[in-house]
């Protein structure tokens, strides 16, 4: 694996140009252009706010609901849109992979980098909103860095696994969007973890994404330290998954061109 990582580092300029290309492709030729990146999440925020602060209120500890749901949507969008891009990143480049060799993990990794770019943008937007509502902030925000790192590791791990599986089994490309839709209900996006009954909460937090997202929200808007057990568990699982997924990806890589 050390050799693979060295090869990836040597190919860093391919990663860079590839990521840049992905970003450019997304923003050329859509008439809304950059506005799109704001309008899409804004739609979700409005919808959730109407649903869960007016119709079926969920307890949010006095935090303005739009802000509350944003603190869930930011990591969720990162995970879900990255994975749904990454799952087809190998398949969609069927004209490239059999023609020229480069470390293939660059394709899913590019999706993750694009996702991180969006994430940073959303975080800035989020911080601006927080300033507006006078909620959260402070030096605790530094803790977001290791949380985001774990989140990125988890996302990359899942991206590598699903992208590779999609080459070997057709169903994967269909199943992943469905799985993502279900997943949204079992991670803390529009409700706080605390509404899960205490005896189930442990199982609920077995999902590393749930524990990372909960920690993210604690730091960002509650100004409270997260559940350290859940957070360290979530990070450990994320990095372990990444190592496994990368090993698995590289092992299958020589066959990619023949599968397309």
């Amino acid at each position: 694996m050390g050799k693979d990582i060295l090869a990836l580092l040597r190919a860093s300029d391919i990663l860079y140009t590839w990521t840049l290309r992905e970003v450019k492709v997304r923003y050329t030729d859509t008439s809304l252009g950059l506005a799109w990146i704001v309008l899409y999440p804004a739609g979700w925020v409005v919808m959730f706010t109407v649903l869960f602060s007016r119709l079926v209120p969920v307890p949010v500890y006095g935090i303005p609901y739009p802000l509350f749901v944003m603190s869930g949507l930011v990591p969720w969008f990162f995970f879900s849109s990255t994975v749904s891009n990454a799952v087809s990143s190998l398949k969609n480049n069927a004209n490239l992979i059999p023609k020229v060799y480069f470390p293939r993990e660059i394709l899913p990794l590019g999706s993750v980098l694009v996702g991180l770019l969006d994430l940073s943008f959303y975080l800035l937007l989020m911080l601006a909103t927080m300033l507006f509502f006078h909620v959260g902030g402070g030096w605790m925000l530094v803790m977001l860095l290791p949380i985001v790192a774990s989140l990125a590791a988890l996302t990359l791990g899942v991206s590598l696994l699903t992208a590779r599986l999609a080459l070997f089994r057709r169903e994967v490309q269909l199943l992943v969007p469905m799985a993502l839709q279900f997943l949204m209900y079992v991670v803390p996006v529009f409700y706080p973890v605390e509404i899960v009954p205490a005896r189930f909460r442990m199982f609920y937090l077995l999902n590393p994404l749930a524990s990372l997202m909960d920690a993210f929200r604690h730091i960002l808007i509650y100004r409270m330290w997260p559940d350290w057990h859940a957070l360290s568990y979530g990070s450990a699982v994320s990095f372990a998954l990444l190592v496994y997924a990368y090993w698995d990806f590289k092992r299958a890589e020589p066959e990619f061109a023949d599968r397309l």
Binding site: R21, V25, N93, N95, P98, K99, V100, Y101
Partner: peptide, 13 residues
């Protein structure tokens, strides 16, 4: 490898 010219060209770019 010139197995295909312009591998990875994207039409919108």
């Amino acid at each position: 490898p010139m197995l295909e010219l312009g591998a990875g060209f994207h039409p919108d770019l």
